[in-house]
C-alpha cells in the first residue's frame, strides 16, 4: 500500500512541487482567515485579541441568519438577485463572444484595436462616477433626456421613481461596464485556436459562418463552461455599486433594485453586528457552493472532460 503511494508521489513529484507556491498562498490568505466564518454563529464581543474574543463570544446558533429570511422582502431580494444574475450570466457569455468574434473579423485591424481599447474605458470608472453620469442623463429636473423629451413636446419622466425602466437600465449598465473586460478572455481564446483548423475548413469550402459555428464556438467551450460554473457560484451576490449608487438608492425603485447585498448593507447600518454580516456572506457563498456542486455534477454527466472537478 505504502509503497504504491510513494511511487505515485515520485511520479508526480514535479507537478506537485509546481502547486506548492500557490498552495502556501491559499493556506495563509484563504484558509487561515476562514476561522472568521465562526463569527456567523457568534454574538461577537471584543474581549482582548481577535481569537480570544472569537472563542469567548456567545454561541447564538443560527440567530444571525434569521434577518435574511424573516422580512417580508426576503423573497423579493432573493428573486431580484437571482434573476439579474441569470441575465448577466447569459448576456455575459453571449454578447462578449459575439463581439470578440466580430472584432476578430473586422477587416481593418487598426480599427479593431481602437474599438477594443474604447470598450475598456468603462471598466476604469467607479460606480460612483458612473452614477453622476447616469444622473446627468436622467435627472428629472435638469437631465438631458428630459430636455430632449420636452423639446419634442413630450412629458418629462421622473426616471428615478419609474420602476419599469430600471431592469433595463441596470442590465445595460452592468453589461456595459464589464464588456471590455469580458471580451478579453474570448479574444485570447480565439487567438489560441490553431489556424490549421480554419485552413482545413477552407479547403473543404466551409463558409465563414460554418467556421464560426463548427470551429470557433466548440473550441471556446472549455472557457465558457468554466466561466459559467464560476458565475453560478456567485448567483446570490450582486454588485453593490450598481444597485446602490447608480440607482441613487431611490426608495421608489426598491421593488426592482433591492438585492441581497443592498438589503444587508441597509439592515446592518444601525446594528453594526459583525456576526450578522458574516452570516449574510456565508449564506451567499453556501448557496453558491451547493449550486457549483450541482452544476459540476450535471456537466460531468454530459462531458466528463469539461467538469471543473
Amino acid at each position: 500500500m505504502f509503497k504504491k503511494q510513494i511511487r505515485t508521489f515520485k511520479r508526480n513529484q514535479t507537478l506537485f512541487m509546481l502547486t506548492i507556491p500557490a498552495t502556501i498562498w491559499y493556506v495563509i490568505f484563504a484558509y487561515l482567515p476562514m476561522i472568521g466564518v465562526l463569527l456567523a454563529f457568534k454574538r461577537y464581543r471584543v474581549n482582548g485579541g481577535f481569537f480570544t474574543s472569537l472563542f469567548t463570544s456567545e454561541w447564538v446558533g443560527f440567530d444571525n441568519f434569521k434577518f435574511l429570511f424573516s422580512s417580508s422582502d426576503a423573497w423579493l431580494i432573493t428573486r431580484n438577485t437571482v434573476l439579474y444574475n441569470i441575465v448577466f450570466i447569459v448576456l455575459g457569455v453571449v454578447i462578449p463572444i459575439l463581439l470578440a468574434i466580430g472584432i476578430n473579423e473586422l477587416l481593418n485591424k487598426r480599427l479593431a484595436k481602437f474599438y477594443q481599447s474604447m470598450l475598456f474605458l468603462p471598466y476604469f470608472i467607479s460606480w460612483v462616477v458612473v452614477s453622476y453620469f447616469v444622473y446627468a442623463f436622467l435627472s428629472p429636473e435638469s437631465g438631458w433626456i428630459n430636455g430632449i423629451i420636452e423639446q419634442m413636446g413630450g412629458n418629462p419622466v421622473s426616471w428615478y421613481s419609474e420602476v419599469k425602466y430600471w431592469p433595463f437600465i441596470i442590465i445595460f449598465m452592468g453589461v456595459w461596464k464589464t464588456l471590455g473586460y469580458n471580451i478579453v478572455v474570448y479574444l485570447a481564446a480565439i487567438c489560441g485556436i490553431d489556424q490549421t483548423y480554419y485552413e482545413a475548413a477552407m479547403l473543404d469550402g466551409a463558409t465563414k459562418w460554418q467556421q464560426i459555428r463548427y470551429i470557433t464556438i466548440p473550441l471556446l467551450k472549455p472557457v465558457i463552461i468554466i466561466l459559467f460554473i464560476l458565475a453560478v457560484g456567485r448567483i446570490f451576490s450582486a454588485d453593490f455599486g450598481l444597485f446602490y449608487q447608480v440607482t441613487r438608492d431611490s426608495g421608489a425603485l426598491y421593488s426592482v433594485t433591492n438585492v441581497i447585498d443592498t438589503y444587508v448593507y441597509r439592515g446592518l447600518m444601525t446594528l453594526g453586528e459583525v456576526g450578522m454580516s458574516s452570516a449574510a456572506a456565508l449564506y451567499q457563498s453556501g448557496v453558491g457552493f451547493i449550486l457549483i456542486i450541482i452544476t459540476n455534477a450535471i456537466i460531468k454527466k454530459i462531458d466528463r472532460d469539461q467538469a471543473l472537478f
Partner: peptide, 11 residues
C-alpha cells in the same frame, strides 16, 4: 476560497 472567506476582520 472562491466562495468562502473569513471576512475582512479575519483577513
Amino acid at each position: 476560497p472562491m466562495l468562502f472567506g473569513g471576512g475582512m476582520v479575519a483577513n
